[in-house]
Design a protein around this nucleic acid. Sequence first.
DNA 1: TATGAATGAGCCTTCATTCAT
DNA 2: CATGAATGAAGGCTCATTCAT
Lengths: 199, 199, 199, 199
Amino acid sequence: MAPRPERAVLRERYDRRRAQVVLGAARVFARSGYDQTSVPELADALGMAAGALYHYFGGKEELLIAICDQLMEPLLVQARALLAAGGPPAERLRALLRVWVAHVIEHRDHMLVFQQERHVIERGEQWAGVRENRKRFERLLDGALREAREARVTRLADDRLLLSALLGMVNHTAQWHRPRGRLSAEEIADGYAELVLKE
Amino acid sequence: MAPRPERAVLRERYDRRRAQVVLGAARVFARSGYDQTSVPELADALGMAAGALYHYFGGKEELLIAICDQLMEPLLVQARALLAAGGPPAERLRALLRVWVAHVIEHRDHMLVFQQERHVIERGEQWAGVRENRKRFERLLDGALREAREARVTRLADDRLLLSALLGMVNHTAQWHRPRGRLSAEEIADGYAELVLKE
Amino acid sequence: MAPRPERAVLRERYDRRRAQVVLGAARVFARSGYDQTSVPELADALGMAAGALYHYFGGKEELLIAICDQLMEPLLVQARALLAAGGPPAERLRALLRVWVAHVIEHRDHMLVFQQERHVIERGEQWAGVRENRKRFERLLDGALREAREARVTRLADDRLLLSALLGMVNHTAQWHRPRGRLSAEEIADGYAELVLKE
Amino acid sequence: MAPRPERAVLRERYDRRRAQVVLGAARVFARSGYDQTSVPELADALGMAAGALYHYFGGKEELLIAICDQLMEPLLVQARALLAAGGPPAERLRALLRVWVAHVIEHRDHMLVFQQERHVIERGEQWAGVRENRKRFERLLDGALREAREARVTRLADDRLLLSALLGMVNHTAQWHRPRGRLSAEEIADGYAELVLKE
DNA sequence: TATGAATGAGCCTTCATTCAT
DNA sequence: CATGAATGAAGGCTCATTCAT
């Protein structure tokens, strides 16, 4: 008879399954909308019983929060590591754009959900973490931008407008990029950098 | 006794009320979400009974379509008129940006709803008109962009990427601009133009 | 065409229907249990759609509260009127018992529900009114009892025990009395009085 | 290595644990209600996993039956023994009341559950045993009462009313008596006897 | 036109229970 | 014996919509 798995093994298995569910839910929500997708529909698409979802999430909204976390946390980690590495401002900004665009493209579904449910994120204590992470990323970006401007390599006088424009164009990438599109993530990022940087 | 209003008067009154309802609904939906807002809630916010809405709209989705129409049709009219007027490509693009940004800012609520419900618009016969209008505007923009590139005044080699970047930054404006913000619509539009045009 | 009913007429119609629903719900809950009766089952038994109940009650529990109110409020009114009328203590207590027993018998279903859901009533802000009414009745009863004892017509040295015994026997009446039982409400009340009073 | 416990030891351990579970469940159900307490909640309160309960009980209702049995069976045993002992009718009744009241007080939780779930007990084959036990006790009580009346020591002409009154006041004791209350079980029982018996 | 009442479908969630481990 | 995971049924409730008035 197989021995009962240890607690740590169970925990890891649980976490992995949970992450898979988040991933699948992002795909379904991106296609059909968060509100328009019923929990039974979602469970069906994920190949599990409706009630089983509630072993992993306290409710539908918690699942939405998990999608946002799965989107933002690894990006923050990457961005922080990159910016900690140093280098000339223009290069740093370009590198950040590459990482960012690649992340957006790889998490296309998460991005679409994130954008669709923007108004939900804005309110409620349970969304404080997501809002904080968004803020953190914007601060990183803002820092990189300011640095670039101080080195006189950015093209727009107004930093805040530049920041908003970048947020707009990069995030919007999720809406038009297709998996086997003409342009690679790198080419797209470099295009955006070209718009933003002198020469 | 007041004379019975003529048919045309009644019709106009009806249209005006309907347009007001669309406007109010855009505000409510932008704040609380289309799906998260129930028809009774919406009616409450508009100061009317739930059932009364059904005199103006066949259903909730029809109201959503009307919001999108109220957003896109006047923009199309303005853009067409402007582009028909002629002039040097860079100036035409700059002018289009000004009109566009101003429209986005003035229809902030409509824009937010439009973006939130993106996935709904994508599917269904009843949304064909909205999709067509969006397509029309993108074609106008694309034309202006191509013209500018042929005049060698744009900064990016790839026109399609430039188009996407513009769509991203301009539409995103609705999400960060506040009524009494630091920058005017014109300043914002000119900033975007500066990113996109040489010099 | 029939004229639209006035607001007051509508209100009264609403109240009457609501009271009928409470009455019917008491019957159903008494027989099948509050928790064991689903809202659809209840609606069925009342000949209305499940959702229609929610025009009259915010939720299932509110219906339960209404049952308790419909039980206690008229009894309080009667008891107060009776005790305000004056008379010799023994007679007053006997009269109170008659009114009370008659009320319990006439509201048999309400009583059974009230007793079954005792533990629910004990907790929660929404039950404060019901608890208060119960307290008020017990105070009236306690007053009548004390008065009787001061007139040396009660049989038990301990007033509080006498009060509890009375509450037990009278309320329990709901559980054994049958509509066409051998004893009238009056005979039962007088029996209880005989236990409690000297002579 | 410890020797494998014998079958009888295992059985006894099982029975003891089962009885503890019944005891704990009575406490939880009395406080929170049988239906309002979910099996996981109950298991939590008992310090065991939800599934583990199913080693001791085939289902939630079986647990409820066990609570009723744990309440009634020892009372029946005591009452039978007492009545078998003989003696003058008034004394026998008084003694029965003492045993009964003491039992009610000691099994306060059981009593509350028993009374709350009255309507469940009324129906269903699985409840026949509980109904039968209740009937048996009422017959014992009825016998003691009749005996007392034949000895002309009871106060009420109507035996059935007297029986009902007694059932009401004694059972109700569970609802107001507190562990460290002013009156002992004996004093309460004697009070009830005083109401019921002449002198 | 406007409204209060009603409906029935559907939603999210919880539950008692089972079972492999 | 005990547990974590899973299930399918059902629960209470809300919703968009209709309709008599």
